[in-house]
Design a protein around this nucleic acid. Structure first.
Length: 713
DNA sequence: GTGCCTCGAGTTCT
DNA sequence: CTCGAGGCAC
């Protein structure tokens, strides 16, 4: 960008300065007001530098609204990314009392508690702010990270030090290492005052005012400032509600630790309460809901946590959410609007998704113009027609959802779901027993091709920086990219790309560097990126835990293909029974937990298609993913295959399985010669017999608990 | 056969 | 986030 020649004359320079002013203002807004930057900091910096260079060469043309004249306009150039010592989890949501009772019931089942055993909960308001983790070492604040994606956050230490609510040191009684977690937020009155101040300052300077959309965005924008002095001038507050890594924990209940945090001078929620049971927690919910409008800050629900920490630990987490906590959300705000039109989108799997185009309407503080209608059945269920008045809500405060269609006064024609792909005109059909209608165009369909490539470079897959939709479309249109491997050959087009509009040598090289950085990708992400049906990131990892390398997995897929062709139908067997038998054989052949026939067939289908095999070979010629290994806590069962059988007394099956996985063991459902260890409770039957026959070690539950304890669980 | 539970796949807005 | 469906335990 800055390498480009300067504009040749005043006219060109003025035009470019105008364009830069608009563009930089836009990105400032994305960054500050909306807290949703869409370009990298480096790309933003390049725009600012370019603007400065042109201004230096053409000082007469400096605009009144020049970005260089706007004090504090530049966002933090770089907030370092830092990994959390303990992942910052999100919370599952409950929308009704029943959901909350269900959580408690699940906890009882998981922990195998008797009906009379009390389950105490804590309840506290859920503040609409930014989660933050404050790390204290030797009782001094050493680091503050934002939540980020939960695994990696942004370093905002300097800014956090300016927040008066946050102590710089902990008392002598506190542990050597302790991470306090909580919410950075801005009070409603302070938010309004800040916007007023920004408006006045802008007016005095004769500029467009920058306004924050809501207190949450104001808090986010203020916390992520480059200059801590700007943050200091923003009235940020903090409320502690939990902890991360800790060398010791001050108490054995949630309530006790929160009390300790309060003793350490952290603000905690005034409404924080410990309840003897779910009914008590729900009463707190109602009390908090009643005060909601009078509170100084925005809240969007009430968080319940299991009070006993030993139980929290036993319950562990599922995905990114703990099993021992839940956020009980306040009812979603609803609104009415008109369904103007129903458009059809084509996804990477070819699925046709109907999207409702709505007359813009504000719901829950956000203007909504689109809402998904999911599929043909959903349209039929709602009987949604173009021109209808509809009721809209934001489910879980995020995704807009059409709840119902209002009675119409005039008849409207029913919506005719297309039977052809709107992009490639191929036939679109629903497979038997399936709800989704799919375009049959496959690789021929440009929409599918684009969506697949987008998926391949997306964050969860290869995560190639700077290769977004716009760039992909351009490269596809140029004919340089049609399949994943082509991305890794883009360098051969370097010189052609340089000089195309919007491509300077520097930006081309940045893209090529980002691509080169992925020559040795994580094998599971690569597999996931290929977009094989039923193979998401979790299944990709499960498969690679077992097969380690992609070629080994491909070999297995070919074995499945051979099996499908070879397994003969027994005479007199119905085709359905044959299919069941085949499916079982496939699941067994693959031998990976949670991987059954659907995934097996999908893998076989993928490799059966010669084009896919070619895409695969081509890709593996370009990249070399290292063998897949998962970091787990070492123990005597790491890498072993364990089977549980019989009735377990102190543990539920889920919990035992979770423990085994944490120790790096593979948990299987049945005993085979691959089994290393059988954990047998009372009443173990055929599995124990079979294990004895095969000479497999059999232990009881107490011995298993000893193994787990020995590994420091 | 039934009923969890989890995963995959699609989606909104800023 | 929500939905459907795969996989597995009972």
């Amino acid at each position: 960008m800055t390498d480009a020649p300067l504009p040749a004359n005043d006219t060109a320079a003025a035009a470019e300065l105008a364009r830069l002013a608009t563009e930089i203002a836009y990105h400032n807004r994305r960054y500050h007001t909306e807290d949703a930057p869409e370009i990298s900091d480096a790309a933003y910096d390049a725009l600012v530098r370019r603007n400065r260079l042109i201004e230096e060469a053409f000082p007469a043309l400096i605009r009144d609204d020049s970005p260089s004249r706007q004090v504090g306009a530049a966002p933090a150039a770089h907030l370092a990314k830092v990994a959390h010592a303990r992942a910052m989890m999100s919370l599952d949501n409950a929308f009704s009392d029943e959901d909350v009772l269900e959580l408690v019931a699940r906890v009882r089942r998981f922990l195998r508690l008797g009906a009379e055993e009390p389950v105490a909960l804590t309840a506290e308001p859920k503040i609409d702010g930014l989660s933050c983790s404050l790390r204290y070492e030797d009782r001094r604040l050493v680091q503050a990270l934002t939540r980020g994606d939960g695994a990696v956050g942004e370093d905002v230490t300097a800014n956090v030090r300016t927040i008066a609510d946050i102590p710089a040191t902990l008392p002598a009684a506190a542990p050597d290492v302790f991470e306090v977690r909580g919410e950075v937020y801005m009070e409603k009155a302070a938010f309004a005052a800040l916007n007023r101040r920004l408006a006045e300052e802008a007016a005095a300077a004769g500029k467009e005012p920058r306004q924050f959309a809501n207190p949450r965005n104001a808090a986010a924008g203020s916390l992520r400032q480059k200059d801590p002095e700007v943050t200091r001038a923003r009235p940020l507050r903090f409320l502690a509600h939990g902890w991360g890594e800790a060398s010791a924990i001050p108490g054995d209940t949630q309530a006790a630790v929160v009390a300790a945090l309060r003793d350490w001078r952290f603000p905690v929620a005034a409404a924080f309460a410990r309840c003897d049971d779910a009914a008590g927690a729900l009463a707190v919910y109602r009390a908090i809901e009643a005060q909601r409008a009078d509170l100084a800050f925005d809240i969007d629900g009430v968080v319940y946590k299991l009070d006993r920490l030993d139980w929290q630990e036993r319950l562990g987490s599922v995905g990114r959410a703990p099993r021992w906590a839940i956020a009980h959300k306040f009812p979603a705000e609803q609104a009415q609007t008109t369904l103007e039109r129903i458009d059809i989108q084509v996804g990477r799997t070819g699925k046709l998704t109907p999207v409702a185009r709505l007359t813009p309407v504000t719901v829950g503080g956000v203007v909504v113009t689109n809402a998904t209608l999911h599929n043909r059945d959903e349209i039929a269920r709602l009987d949604a027609r173009e021109g209808d008045r509809v009721i809209l809500q934001r489910a879980g405060d995020v995704i807009p959802q059409i709840v119902a269609v209002l009675p119409r006064d005039t008849e409207l024609p029913p919506f005719a779901f297309p039977d052809h792909c709107p992009i490639c005109r191929s036939e679109a059909v629903a497979e038997e027993g399936e709800v989704d209608v799919r375009c049959t165009g496959g690789l021929v369909c440009p929409a599918q091709r684009l969506e697949r490539l987008k998926h391949f470079v997306s964050r969860g897959a290869l995560d190639i920086d700077g290769l977004g939709e716009k760039t992909l479309v351009e490269l596809i249109d140029l004919g340089w990219i049609t399949e994943p491997a082509d991305i890794f050959r883009l360098a051969t087009h370097r010189d052609e790309l340089v000089g195309r509009e919007g491509w300077q040598a520097r930006s081309v090289d940045a893209l090529l560097d980002a691509i080169e950085a992925r020559r040795a990708p994580d094998a599971a992400r690569l597999l996931f990126g290929l977009g094989i049906r039923h193979v998401g990131i979790v299944t990709a990892r499960d498969l690679l835990k077992r097969y380690v390398t992609l070629p080994a997995l491909a070999d297995k897929a070919h074995e499945v293909i051979a099996l499908r062709e070879a397994l003969p139908a027994v005479i007199g067997e119905t085709s359905e029974r044959h299919r069941t038998r085949l499916d079982k054989a496939i699941a067994e052949l693959i031998g990976v937990e949670n991987v059954g026939a659907a995934v097996g067939h999908a893998l076989a289908d993928f490799f059966h298609e010669p084009h896919n095999q070619a895409v695969w070979d081509d890709l593996l010629a370009q990249v070399s993913p290292p063998p897949f290994v998962v970091e787990t806590r070492g123990s005597e069962v790491t890498g072993k295959t364990v089977v549980f059988t019989g009735k377990l007394e102190t543990l539920s099956r889920d919990e035992a399985k979770a423990q085994a996985e944490r120790l790096g063991a593979h948990v299987a459902g049945s005993v085979s010669k691959k089994t290393d260890l059988l954990v047998a409770g009372p009443g173990a039957g055929s599995k124990a017999t079979k294990a004895a026959e095969l000479g497999i070690t059999v232990i009881d539950e107490a011995a298993w608990n000893a193994i787990v304890a020995g590994a420091g669980e």
